[in-house]
Design a protein around this nucleic acid. Structure first.
Lengths: 401, 401
DNA sequence: TAAACTTTTTTAATTTTTTAATAAGAAATT
DNA sequence: AATTTCTTATTAAAAAATTAAAAAAGTTTA
């Protein structure tokens, strides 16, 4: 009874996190409860200062509805975005704002037995130095590369504990806050789904163009993870007969023809072999800087740089053709680090689709560029925590008390 | 109120169609209603003779539960399975039995403006000659090749009406019974999901090895159709650099290296060019017979025939590798006409997976052969109707009256 | 400018659902 | 062999949710 009430209370808070300024009618539809019940729950939430009125919405032909928002400073989230070398940590409020500056630490994951301890220490430090009471944190969301089992809380590629113990449990026991993990590409898809280009879409593919090529899938209106959570291994589908050995051990993977690392590598090779290009002044000490430099070169009309993107883009397009055939998505979103290159991708991808896609299929599919930028993964990590929020009424009891 | 009651009544009937011999507790969990309510609904359904008691189930450590079944002869379904040349029609009861002999008519679909009329006439005839009152038919389910929009009831490849009008509406208006259509491979997947090897699976792929290669997907516990219903175009993903022109107009499609038609074609070529084989005595007038002949030859150890299957199997395996990477399914089921070849496929597919799949991924995936045989599509067509059953309370009112 | 129509909000009454208490049948344990 | 435990079934009382009715606040149309 009270249990159930808390469930629906939390559902309201969750809905208000994912969409601001909802009316009582909206909320009652979303939580599948009648209007009177929803109204009462909202009233109670306002007394507890978890929800605030937010003025009237424009009329749609009748009385204007009062809208509500979630109080942004009563609960907080810790978002963590890891790649193989660098980890970013941020604290976010209930209205998707970064409360503290995003912290960036160098934390190499491969063959690093101390990575997990370092991660935990850093998270604890960020929480402590934030000045926010610990009780106000409702969860930690972590995105990481590798084979992640979301349910069990295990990453089979990195950050492993002895006996395949759950790292979410482990971190949670130390930090004292619920912890959720997911694959980096899945979180980017989640961010696009809730706050970006895939918002409200039932069927969308989010391609994470990064040092590798990742894929997150929104299918039938929810994030699809597959049987063990490993779905979306886009970069290692056997699509090419190039004889190129991939680091995964196989031959002809999509990644051997597309990743940003490959573009940088080819740029370096080209310059070393004397190709004429604006890239000649580029340094390759920092790959992020190197990549930004190549993007700039394309924008300013450099032919060699454009060629690199064209080839990679065409091959991504060939991969997208496979996706369109199998999933018949409404929208495909290019996100992740590589999305900063923007429209550069469009032409070669379109060309690949023209060649490799049945017209009837790609006619129904649109391709868009992400607008979330490099923070997509952090936003997705926060959304991951909130997706689980209604299942954690215990946490909320503490706050309500 | 009464509307709602009928909804839950129908939900019970639906559950009993999809799984026989359920107890009251089972049903109450499945329809998400409390035990007392479920008990009352069942009682009422028994009074109306729609449900019957079916003895006690074995005890699981307490009082033995009474189990219930749906009365098999109070409602009937019409199942239709079409391929490009032949159409099969059957009448099925509520316990998945074929009530009448399966009718088979030659009905070529390509460029045949009279196909739809012929189909409707045949359906009407089957219903009329069955001797079953029309009121007892709750729906017609039709599986067909091509690009099928399930919602709108349109097949963009065959059986088209002027102005893209809905053929389900059209047929329904003439026959007087609700009509549902879907892609043939989707229906085979549906059959496997409810009554076959994919039963109860949350994530499974059903590969329809037929004259082409189809794919039906069970994702997150339901059939996945994609944005417009065209998902699963497995046979036309660009996987090969063979330069082979596919009938779809593209080059290198999976179908150019795998379909059963290709096996038959290659068998013919081989024999004509003088290859030594038991296939020499084969006639190619009837493709079904020809295919069965080749399967028999493999079983009896013919090397040439085995070679044909090996190559096709390996290439299917390469396609399956793509599926495993993208979907991380728990199970892959080989179904459709080609499944009759059984274990012949296993070895070459396994080999392809070893070469093209990340070990961690295919370790979690099992491959199974369908046991539904050639009737899978008809069973799926019936299931399609029943999936929609609870949304059609009107029909049931007639029967209950 | 008033009447008619929409949509939201409030309040009250009815209906429905769940819970709880009870009983009965069957297996496991002492 | 008797008791305990577990599951199912039945009934009545309590709780909760939905529905219905009416008021309030706007918009549109005659």
């Amino acid at each position: 009874m009270t249990e159930k009430k808390i469930l629906f209370r939390n559902k309201i808070l969750k809905e208000l996190y994912f969409e601001d300024n909802l009316s009582c009618v909206d909320l009652s539809k979303r939580i599948h409860k009648s209007f009177p019940i929803t109204a009462k729950l909202i009233e109670q939430l306002m007394v507890e200062n978890l929800v605030i009125e937010n003025g009237y919405a424009p009329s749609t032909g009748g009385r204007r509805p009062l809208t509500y928002s979630i109080q942004k400073n009563v609960m907080y989230l810790v978002s963590v975005a890891m790649d193989q070398f660098v980890t970013k940590i941020a604290i976010m409020d209930m209205q998707n704002n970064f409360v503290s500056p995003i912290e960036k630490i160098v934390l190499p994951l491969p063959d690093n037995t101390k990575a997990l301890d370092a991660l935990i220490e850093k998270i604890a430090q960020v929480i402590n130095s934030s000045g926010i009471e610990k009780e106000k944190f409702i969860g930690v969301g972590i995105g990481m590369p590798g084979f992640v089992d979301v349910q069990k809380g295990i990453n089979y590629s990195f950050l492993q504990l002895p006996n395949n113990a759950s790292i979410t449990k482990h971190i949670s026991e130390i930090i004292g806050i619920p912890v959720f993990i997911d694959n980096d590409s899945s979180l980017i898809a989640l961010a696009e789904f809730y706050f970006g280009e895939a918002r409200g879409e039932k069927n969308a593919m989010v391609i994470n163009i990064g040092w590798g090529i990742g894929l997150g899938m929104i299918l039938n209106g929810e994030l699809f993870r597959g049987h063990e959570g490993f779905a979306g291994e886009f970069s290692h589908i056997p699509l090419f007969l190039n004889g190129q050995l991939c680091w995964c051990g196989k031959v002809g993977c999509l990644e051997t023809e597309t990743s940003l690392l490959l573009i940088i590598e080819k740029a370096r090779e080209g310059i070393n072999s004397g190709r004429l290009s604006k890239l000649n002044s580029l340094t390759f000490d920092d790959i992020e800087q190197a990549f930004d430099g190549i993007v700039k070169a394309v924008r300013s009309g450099d032919q060699f740089a454009a060629e690199l993107f064209s080839k990679a883009g065409y091959n991504i397009g060939k991969g997208i053709a496979v996706l369109i055939h199998l999933f018949n998505p409404k929208k495909i979103i290019l996100s992740g680090r590589g999305a900063s290159a923007g429209k550069i991708w469009s032409a070669p991808i379109q060309q690949a689709l023209n060649e490799h896609c049945i017209p009837r299929l790609f006619q129904g599919t649109s391709i868009a560029m992400s607008s979330l930028g490099t923070q997509a993964e952090l936003i997705g990590a926060a959304a991951l925590v909130m997706e689980h929020y209604e299942q954690e009424p215990i946490i909320n009891k503490q706050i309500a008390a």
